[in-house]
Amino acid sequence: MSMQTGLATSTTRLRSYAPATDVSVAAPAPRLEIARATPVTAHRNPRTEPGPVRFIIIALAITFLSVFVVLPLVVVFASAFSKGVVAYFAALAEPEALAAIKLTLLIAAISVTLNLVFGVVAAWAISKFEFAGKTFLITLIDLPFSVSPVISGLVYVLLFGAQGYFGPWLQAHDVHILFAVPGIALATIFVTFPFVARALIPLMQEQGTQEEEAAISLGASGLQTFFRVTLPNIKWGLLYGVLLCNARAMGEFGAVSVVSGHIRGETNTMPLLVEILYNEYQFVASFAIASLLAMLALITLVAKTILEQRLDEAEVPDGD
């Protein structure tokens, strides 16, 4: 009994947690609105506030968003194009910029691919099986969110640094992890690990195991069950997690900064290069790279909205 309640609370925590992972974007519209919209007798309809009040509230919200979200974005793009389109593209065509873009894409590809696999496995284990230490595993998945990115980076310095635990062995065998691509990938995987698992766990828990049980009782193999039953059910949630994971992987600064070594044209990712160029007074170049990252954010935002609609549609038939 107590086990059950524990599970139930952890499930609700998971569900409420998932949208909150990205604070920059409003959470999906809560369904409660439908209930609120039904007129209740003897009360004023909350949607018919006096005109001026409505106006002030809306104006406040728009002003706030303009100042804190739209304005910085506009500044990024304005600064990037301040010396014209030619200067903008010249800055992006610099070998250092190209190297940073390549490295960022490579790191994102590695970490998203691996986290896709790990995330599905972890979510599968948590939502479909009962085993001891399940709550502990859920907590572990959360760990990267609660640890400061600088610490996430330093952990790898302590493990793989020349003075660290595995450092001397790695050096003797000429394996480079720290201050090279593997170190940056490891740090990025660490900070982006929760995204896929977090997006899938509530979804898969809600769906339960009936469909899989049915498939297996009809003679499907484990793999067939996964690819024909489970995967189609979770595909939108999976994409949603991948999207967030990718955005964070490309944008990560703190953890990567610690393990990068800042070698020009080699271990600088785009966020690191933005800072470096800014400190070199190359503002156009700096904001040009920043504008690419901002564009990524905008694309993520649009894709996220579309995916959320799909997710809602997918959930509705279950009777939410």
């Binding site: 310095v157 793989f160 640094g161 020349a162 003075q163 660290g164 450092g167 050096q171 480079h176 720290l178 201050f179 070594g261 800042h262 070698i263 020009r264 044209g265 080699e266 470096i276």
Partner: peptide, 20 residues
Amino acid sequence: IKQSHGGSGSQARSVIDGLQ
């Protein structure tokens, strides 16, 4: 020649930690 720049003290620390 590849370059790495940063605060002098932290750069020394990176070399000690294995920056080649």
